[in-house]
Write a protein that binds this DNA or RNA. Structure first.
Lengths: 113, 113
DNA sequence: TGAGTATATGCCTGTCAAGGCATATACAAG
DNA sequence: CTTGTATATGCCTTGACAGGCATATACTCA
């Protein structure tokens, strides 16, 4: 999860992913469209590839990069585990505050024993 | 979006968010449960707060931190825009490869003119 | 095979962010 | 008002990582 998030947490890489959302692209095209130097693009694509975000399809000397679904699924699953939070949110806060108060009282009684 | 992702792209902050998923916590509790120093926890919470991930509820000297929904919604919306990709994925690759071939031929003819 | 093109890699440098620690601030309780 | 407790902030140091650039590698075509 951390690897997945870290891969996206950089402006140029995020932009590359967003560009690839509209379809596959060669390294050169990415570099030109995003106004980046080719070596940096290759490096960013390496990071994205290691994180599972992209796969490569060679075409002569070109390398066509395309998005993979797995990391998006991972993000989706992770997000899913937070959905229940919103329902229970205020209940939990009230519970916490009440419990904290109770524990405080118990501690004070404990001091006197 | 970048701010949101960057906030999560750090191990301890990710763990704080995951801890808060189970309910609100004070700074001290977070520090103890995650085995972190209090100042670092405060700093991480600052980052999470700036990114909109948490809100604070004062309770005496304590500060109770709780998750907010907005950044999760943002992530969800962003992810949503990638769903269509999987359906069209192979079509797009084939289209790209075919177009690339076509353009190559056109370019060769152009050279001869 | 040689020249041209597309991409990857290695090295160097600078920047930024996280941790450690001291300390400031805020509140509570006697 | 003093002491204790909870949290935030500031300063310093260090490590990771992104960019720049030269160069290696891989492929094409004549």
């Amino acid at each position: 999860m951390l690897t997945t998030l870290a891969a996206l947490a950089e402006l140029n890489r995020l932009q590359i992913v967003e560009l690839l959302r509209d379809g596959p692209r060669s390294v050169g095209e990415i570099a030109e469209l995003l106004q980046l130097r080719q070596p940096q693009v290759s490096k960013h694509l390496r990071v994205l590839s290691d994180a599972g975000f992209v796969e490569v399809h060679p075409l002569a000397q070109q390398r066509i990069y395309q998005l993979r679904r797995e990391p998006f699924h991972e993000l989706d699953t992770w997000l899913e585990s937070y959905r229940h939070v919103w329902d229970a949110r205020f209940d939990r806060l009230e519970t916490y505050l009440r419990d904290a108060q109770t524990q405080e009282q118990e501690q004070r009684h404990g001091d006197k024993q």
